[in-house]
Design a protein around this nucleic acid. Sequence first.
DNA 1: CCACAGGACGGCT
DNA 2: AGCCGTCCTGTG
Length: 288
Amino acid sequence: MEEQEYILKNADSFEPKDIFECGQCFRWNIQDDGSYTGVIKNGIINVKKDGKNIIFTGKCDKDLKEIVTYYFDLNRNYEKIKEQLSNIDKYLKTSIEYGSGIRILNQDLWETIISFIISANNNIPRIKGIIERLSKKYGNEIEWNGVKYYTFPNANQLKDVSIQDFRNLGLGFRDIRLYETTQMILKRKVDLDLLRENPNTLEVRDELLKLSGVGPKVADCILLFSDLKRFDVFPIDVWVRRVMNDLYIKKEDETKVSKKEIEKLAEEKFGNLRGIAQQYLFYWRREN
DNA sequence: CCACAGGACGGCT
DNA sequence: AGCCGTCCTGTG
């Protein structure tokens, strides 16, 4: 564990607020100076934007530059992606201008699965609170600049946690889902390493759906926001349903719009980049 | 006190 | 296959 710094110069498509507050992650918190601090695997990282430069500082057990290059997907050309998507229609163009600093993260698969099971029927402040308590109780403590941080507990660290223990953390009815999914992954009923190797998104999705607490929306979020990194998915929650109805479908009652209809439209319009398109539309609609 | 917000799941048609 | 009530907690 050592103190490190890495400066990304003249960064395109990198705005900490857009990245951390577009709903894809739960462990980043804004600091007094406007920077964000979060936990990536066993490292504590701070991200500060200084003009066109991004300053990463952190305390981690591997090379900081490698960690953030992977996590923030820095080798992907978002300028090109945004140009491609902006050409589709004026609505997408507007939403991309609004969230132009978004990057889709490569988050740890296990952490993403558990986090999005917790997200079901839940709001972001509460999700963050639950994950914080879970990490504090079962993760590893790391101190940095006088502040204590906690790594996200791995499956082994949750092995002996009971349904009641989960309930006591404030998980509500999600307690049993967390318990069952942890046991299933430990027993390799679903093998996370095999998922990463499988290029067939629909097959991986079917595997994820076997996990307790993972339905269609959560599965798509896991595929998009984890290191599975699939863009050919389209997570549909109430906000996406709202924005897709307002812009394209225009029914009087948005709750009457079927998932199938939205999925078909998204695939036709946005193609294999529909996951990224979804994120710009979602963020734009939520914040406006 | 009640209404509402947020997805998975199981029972029903 | 699609519809709908229930699950829990925080907010207004």
